[in-house]
Nucleic acid binder design. Structure first.
Lengths: 366, 366
DNA sequence: CTGTTAGCGCCTTCAG
DNA sequence: CTGAAGGCGCTAACAG
């Protein structure tokens, strides 16, 4: 029975086993050359004392902490929670721990987070940048020793791995389906948080050349919407693009309500959204407005969450593999750290899937 | 411009400032007595070099890591995600970082998690124990130096702070409302994961003495259900208690389906659930069964999530302050660490609220 | 194969 | 008020 004494150290084990600390360390750490009998004696001694290595001390020397930092905008969102789960499962399986930081989609806060993680010597960082065009602090993070993987967003300003979905195509496809069903006035509720993106009409002039890695997800999805219209030769009505200025359900709800109130002028017959938050907000607004989906309005949500099958009729959605986004990001990161992966930074795209349910109604052409 | 050199150390700053390392440390750490002019010179030097203290080295000496460990069963559940957000916000505000571990509601995994956190010298731990009666590993975590706070669950076997809601009363109240509305055959979908709790009927013999801190949340909520019946002098029909063996929506869905299939025999007119997972599963099953809420079946969900107002008619719910549960737990923990709180371990109860919506219909007495 | 010697970067006595 | 010495627990050369 050990007393209330402090944790036994390598030194204690060495003394009990009758070897030097370095031999003891080698025996326990499985490195260097060691006699089998020695190893066993040391192990027995360690066991007897209930010895556990002190990772702090080890990290001081090796420079490795077996820790990865995850910086995310909103821990409580279903998207991040699920992705984080994916990251966590992989990290745990590969012997890494997770230090987590929340930033509220704020670049300044993200800067602090990154500094903090650097100070703490994390071996790698997974981040979903608040703004894919303000990433100097992220660039500064990259060293031969420290890996960086972008999650859900990619940036042309960063030469590193990213794991995302091809949301431009996903949205082009989804909106294309509405257009094919005869819809000519489709509203979109999107979050244009970044100042420069608020002026989304600049996208119109550059539908082809737009480099998706210079755009945040909401803008990328808007781009998909615009492209679908172009492909179908349908003009864009700016009044149908509703912008939410914040990442909140309420903000999305208000933006949608504005869209709904102008229905007489715009003739809007369908609505699409760009993520879980805008989906919930928009659907709620539609319902509050006394409109029925799809009888009065067709609707496509982004992200296949529980509620989309709980409401009736069930909502058609663009599904993205959220868990896999996280787990894949973690795998890529750890592959870098373990030296398994040495190729240049890569943009990894996971597949989305359109799930057809009952929220789309075909309309007659006028 | 500093080169690709390593991070500057205290030693570098000291040399540049022209003082010893100890003086430099004091100047930067604001402790001991230091001349104002010295402090400024040192600061200037530190600034010039872009010096940042190495928390690892500091922790080695102080024994403090400014880190709290959070061990949770399922990161991706809306409950934990939201609670974690609360924890994170408080921790950040008070200068602590978060190391997170997922356990899948598995006690063995929880043991590992706890060992890991201890090894990493976290200053405190917030945990939602997988089983409130197997907590020896948690007890072992408590030291004068290291604080422990239970989240969402409390345990009579542990003398420490806990932050929970009074779910027994919350459920007694909710079921009472159904009974008042004339319901006599109310189904409950609950998760009795722990072997010994599967035999829930033992609760029946001990409705009063049951110490809620010996029960996991789902059982506590079931207890509330049982008590409501007793208060109303309504007998319990065991066939109305549906047990899910796992924490999954599907499992809840199947359990509910069984309940639904026996409607002819049981005469069930209402269903209550015990958490978000069972709520989603049960509601889905009811809908799949072609039943309408509340026309064919009244329904009360646990946790006020978005979907409960998105479906129509909206679902009445027992709301718990999830974010506050997390933030409060973090505050209590940090108060202990900062020595602000020295009272014996306390069971902190936050209020739940019943939100009446449209999922309950009164029934005529037979 | 094993032991010795040095630190990692910082804090903390203890002298001065 | 400041400096010198020592060490937290471990690993990393180097000898032996």
């Amino acid at each position: 029975m050990s007393d209330v004494r402090k944790q036994p150290t390598l030194h204690d084990v060495a003394r009990l086993a009758g070897f030097s600390t370095s031999t003891t360390a080698r025996a326990l750490g499985n490195y260097g050359r060691i006699a089998e009998t020695t190893r066993e004696k040391v192990r027995a001694a360690a066991e007897e004392l209930g010895y556990r290595a002190n990772p702090l001390a080890r990290s001081m020397i090796t420079g490795k902490t077996k820790t990865i930092g995850v910086v995310c905008a909103d821990l409580s969102s279903p998207f991040f929670a699920e992705a984080l789960r994916g990251i966590s499962d992989v990290a745990k399986g590969r012997g890494y721990d997770i230090l987590i930081v929340n930033t509220d989609e704020d670049v300044a806060s993200e800067r602090d987070a990154v500094a903090l993680l650097r100070d703490r010597h994390v071996d790698g960082v997974i981040v979903s940048p608040a703004d894919v065009r303000q990433v100097d602090h992220l660039a500064a993070l990259q060293t031969p020793e420290r890996a960086l993987v972008l999650l859900d967003r990619s940036s042309s300003a960063l030469d590193t791995d990213s794991v995302t979905v091809d949301d431009v195509s996903a949205m082009t496809d989804a909106v294309g389906r509405l257009l094919d069903a005869g819809h000519r006035h489709i509203g979109i509720v999107t979050e244009l948080r970044i100042e420069r993106e608020a002026d989304w009409q600049s996208l119109l002039g550059d539908l082809d050349h737009s480099e998706r890695r210079e755009l945040n997800p909401s803008s990328r999805r808007l781009l998909g919407y615009l492209r679908a219209h172009r492909e179908h030769d349908i003009p864009i009505d700016p009044a149908l693009v509703a912008r939410t200025g914040a990442t909140s359900v309420d903000s999305a709800r208000r933006a949608t309500t504005r869209l709904l109130e102008q229905r007489d002028e715009t003739g809007m017959t369908a609505v699409v959204t760009v993520d879980n938050t805008t989906s919930v907000g928009a659907y709620g607004a539609i319902r509050d407005h006394g409109l029925r989906v799809p009888d009065d309005l067709s609707f496509i949500a982004f992200d296949n969450l529980d509620w989309t099958t709980l409401v009736q009729p069930a909502v058609s959605v663009i599904e993205q593999p959220v868990y896999a986004l996280g787990s894949r990001a973690a795998d890529v990161l750890l592959d870098r750290l373990d030296g398994i992966r040495t190729t240049p930074g890569e943009e990894i795209l996971l597949d989305t899937r359109f799930i057809e349910r009952e929220s789309i109604r075909a309309v007659q052409q006028v």
